[in-house]
Nucleic acid binder design. Sequence first.
DNA 1: TATTAATCGAGACGGTACGTCAAGTCTTCTA
DNA 2: TAGAAGACTTGACGTACCGTCTCGATTAATA
Lengths: 196, 196, 196, 196
Amino acid sequence: MDEISAGPGRPRDPKVDDAILTGTVEVLTERGWAGTTIEEVASRSGVAKSSIYRRYGSKAALVAAAATRDRATRFPGFDTGSAWGDLTAFILGSLRMLASVWKQVLPGMLAEAAADPEISTVVQEFWVWRREAIAGIVRRGVERGEIRAETDPELVLDLFDGPVLFRLLVTRAPLDGRYADRLVDEVMRIIGTSWH
Amino acid sequence: MDEISAGPGRPRDPKVDDAILTGTVEVLTERGWAGTTIEEVASRSGVAKSSIYRRYGSKAALVAAAATRDRATRFPGFDTGSAWGDLTAFILGSLRMLASVWKQVLPGMLAEAAADPEISTVVQEFWVWRREAIAGIVRRGVERGEIRAETDPELVLDLFDGPVLFRLLVTRAPLDGRYADRLVDEVMRIIGTSWH
Amino acid sequence: MDEISAGPGRPRDPKVDDAILTGTVEVLTERGWAGTTIEEVASRSGVAKSSIYRRYGSKAALVAAAATRDRATRFPGFDTGSAWGDLTAFILGSLRMLASVWKQVLPGMLAEAAADPEISTVVQEFWVWRREAIAGIVRRGVERGEIRAETDPELVLDLFDGPVLFRLLVTRAPLDGRYADRLVDEVMRIIGTSWH
Amino acid sequence: MDEISAGPGRPRDPKVDDAILTGTVEVLTERGWAGTTIEEVASRSGVAKSSIYRRYGSKAALVAAAATRDRATRFPGFDTGSAWGDLTAFILGSLRMLASVWKQVLPGMLAEAAADPEISTVVQEFWVWRREAIAGIVRRGVERGEIRAETDPELVLDLFDGPVLFRLLVTRAPLDGRYADRLVDEVMRIIGTSWH
DNA sequence: TATTAATCGAGACGGTACGTCAAGTCTTCTA
DNA sequence: TAGAAGACTTGACGTACCGTCTCGATTAATA
């Protein structure tokens, strides 16, 4: 995916790459999605506006890149030995990640994605690994006999991320550990082979 | 809330009220949330910009008003005699309403609400009657013995609107009758007193 | 020529008109034609950029307006009783006007006019009254018998402004009183009825 | 001033020299002075921008070089046997040269020269040979007794190029053969020893 | 019947950010 | 070193809307 060897011409300066994304996260943190302007990111990161536009065609693309870089660093592993434990670890990790900048950024991102297919793609890619993580948990749970064999991972993601998104965007109800427990409880009631 | 008798001075022209909201829906339909500008709404509806600002303080407030007016006309009743039927009617009605303009408008609205508390209030009010509708369905279901007594209507809304929102904003998976059936199925598995 | 009564809408603020043109002359004086930017004029005159663009479509149009306003205030009358005196007064007045800002501005103006027909029009209008002034001098001279009856005022303007422009733009030879005398001398040699 | 033998390193490629100037004239022809950019010249002539900047410090310097190269090829000799004939040949040749690209280029050049002394020098050098050509014509005319002995060639140039420049830049009056005749007529009326 | 006060359309106003463009400089690889 | 390629900083461009404001012209209820 990455260019290994350079073509002709001056190669892009990785320090500039870095400064842009770091500056983006900074401005997002301070000003939120709507208050973030390319102009501010440029002046903040000591980089020319044109150097940003050369890389990213829009604010949304820029923020998406920053988010993608951030994701890699934040999410730990989870394989606790039980479906219950795995799901709890997964949802808690998600909520922890959300608690940072991205809680403020996500709404704007999603709005942009609704209009711009290119951004939509980026957003969906952002969710692909979540689906795969869930699929892994489900597979292990089925092998252990904790989860029903015909379970669709897509459905589980629906039931996890849907309500979280709903609370984040609409009801603004708290997204804490107790809520995580309840979510896992409900989901296991649907996909589990038995219940206490 | 509404002024019943006029004070001194020229009263507001109801034709202007109407032209504004109608024009707003028109522009939203054609241009989507981001492409909708107050200036365009004004020129489209043959109304002065100041006449819009006199009524609504922002684009979001304007759109919220248009949405509220629209809601009243679109949503039919539902009381089918069974919890299963009620929930299905409710979710199908919701999906039908979403299929119109508001699918395009909702993301932008929610993004704005995330930043502006005033808009957030409007959005939440928009959801209040949904909670109440669900509460009614649950109450009737409990009385009939179809739904477990301790069921929290809030939770049911979570499980309905969450996944729908998730699909709408993120995965863009289809929101059709089959999906509605599956949703009701899952929810009833959680809140129902028995299952087949 | 001027609008006496206003159309609908807020009328243009004459203080803004004035601030813009005054600021333009200021910036031109300090920075010259090339160094003058609309942005600088705006910030200097405490006026929004859009208020300038609302009035003038380009730098050249803006400067032309400033020049036109300036012309009215700078040029005194001339009717000295003899063709010789009139022409001398005319050419001296012209050189005096040139000695101010406009010496620096004219080249850029003319370059712009060469490309943009609209500017060209403005520039030519700027020269119309010179043609007319010359025509008046010629007419009076013919009546007095000092100037040959068939004299074409256009030609006289050619012979006056041409060499001045040439010196200004190319040779940068001095444009002083002695040169003015010589110019009048030459021209009278062509259009005069006799010579000493 | 020119490097005769190369120092160390790769010598400059004369094909590049040529491509640059040829491309410059091409672009000037198509786009005029203002529309000509170094970037376009570079891509047009298949040469790197840095190869242009290595040779010429600015757009004006580049265009000046192109003009200088062009001048040598265009202007024929003139020595017709009479002052009248010489002057007519000279002015007609000048007008013919002007009719090409340079009519469009001159205004921009002169504007630049007004601000940049370096360009001003180039422009003045461009006029030196005209002064000398006129000086030759005058000298021969004086020897033949057609032109008054005290005639200043500088003045003649003033009277020729001034009006031409004026018409070119300002009035846009036609510059054809008839005008050439009239110009010669007027000038001879001033510097000639007699008239018909 | 006049007065008063708010509305209406229109459009100017000071702003802010946009995305584009060209200038001139710098950095890499290749010849 | 030159040369091609292209990234880089800089700075102005002209545009689009924002939300506020000032006009002159209505439009009722009040005096």
